[in-house]
Write a protein that binds this DNA or RNA. Sequence first.
DNA 1: AGACACAGTTTCACTATGTGAAACAACACT
DNA 2: AGTGTTGTTTCACATAGTGAAACTGTGTCT
Lengths: 276, 276
Amino acid sequence: MATMRKGVHLLGEERQSSSSVQTIQRASAILRCFMENDTEMGVTILSQQVGIHKSTVSRLLSTLRKEGFVDQNPDTGKWWLGLGLLDLAGAVLERMDLRKVALIPLRNLAAQTQETVNITVLDGNECVNIENISSPKSIQHAGRLGRRTPLHCTSTGKAFLAFLTTEERDVLLSSTLLPCTENSIVDRRALEQALEHVREQGYAITHEEYEEGLSAVAAPIRDHTGRVVATVSISGPSYRMGPDQIEKFVEPLKDIAHNISTQLGYVQPKSDSRER
Amino acid sequence: MATMRKGVHLLGEERQSSSSVQTIQRASAILRCFMENDTEMGVTILSQQVGIHKSTVSRLLSTLRKEGFVDQNPDTGKWWLGLGLLDLAGAVLERMDLRKVALIPLRNLAAQTQETVNITVLDGNECVNIENISSPKSIQHAGRLGRRTPLHCTSTGKAFLAFLTTEERDVLLSSTLLPCTENSIVDRRALEQALEHVREQGYAITHEEYEEGLSAVAAPIRDHTGRVVATVSISGPSYRMGPDQIEKFVEPLKDIAHNISTQLGYVQPKSDSRER
DNA sequence: AGACACAGTTTCACTATGTGAAACAACACT
DNA sequence: AGTGTTGTTTCACATAGTGAAACTGTGTCT
């Protein structure tokens, strides 16, 4: 009673189906906490934020440091994510031939358009950025490695969704579509219509559906099985991405998507009168 | 007695100074195991490689998946590092202003030299690659994000070592210098001499000290305190990096290192007769 | 200086948490 | 059907992880 174990039982918080290891969940929560706050943090603050006793946080951090997942600033004593993470991420990236294949055409596209160019893949119901070449201009869409975006209100997301089966879409869009801006499509029916349009055109456009002032075009990349495995996108501030400008971007974008697809072994099906 | 807990006590394997959390060590070992083997792996193989019971490995993996650290190939059922790692790595990279500042000059350098260009920082007694622009040529030095290299036999390493205090060097070079090739400098005295040369020149060269056929030049980047916080390097196959070619690379390389340093707030100390 | 506040680490008793053996599934070849 | 191989789940057990409290270190008042 003097000792009342407060935070121990997380039973309340959605008991996982197949049993999970608490320590890893906690370590992960700490790492994620750094990401969310995007600053160095001390033990006490961390312990408050993640709801774990500070002595435990201290112990976890010191283990995570030994493993290279976090680092301690020798000046401030505060903690931050460690360079060991780069090593793991590098291994992930290395195994994606997609990335190697895309490198050269992507640089050309970036040079040509002077806007931010990204490659994304699908992970769960989000797009993940696996390659990012930022625009040289100072007003730019600042993408970054690993950044995740929702599917229903981004050009990349729509480029994925459009070429899935209806069943697959149903799974990915099972939760309600949250609006990100006032332009976001939140009605499932309207979305299906938009996707039909994407299929016809072979690329997807968004104007300020995800973020005010941000516009983008994306085209699908297919592998040898014909599946859409990734997307290329060009994104930038809306005032530089008007209809006429987008017009200019579309052809090079589709070309590059097709070029990369071909290198991945994709062969366009013998066209039945039009491209499909 | 029927149950004989075999692998439980790791006490033997170097008991950590301040107590460590076993579960995290194990999870980390699994992640690292993927990196070392550089392939998808099944539960059984993994359990053999890291010396943990397969049921435990299975449980750890399923937790790691929930946290996005690993992923299971739906076709093969085998495991591999997860895209969630990119997210964390992206956060690490994002906080390095160094990287933002270096971006444009680096691309120019890469375009100009047509060889692989890297930026590294120091982590423990290794260099870590935080930015890599690969050469467009098909025979190239393939750097990658997060890759670690030793200090004593790389141009980047020497560019760091040369500008540390003797005490700092003593710490970093406390273990014996292992030869990587027959050109590697393994004698501490000889290394000091080489470093003196680096200080005079303001850049470091290695010819096949780290890997047969690989040559590189590196220059130090300093921050506002004057400390060497990173290096830029150009690396490629030795046959394209002869003395005359290196000669051509040196000036642009030093320029860019200086350019980046200046952007980080470095002001060259009022030169006492020569640059120092 | 001395006293106080705050932040991080270590100790220690306690038991909840993670563990491994074994049973159970789920495939893949014969 | 039968046998081997690989992954998951169950379950009893005790180890490994936990949190309270004590301790250490550092900064900041008056």
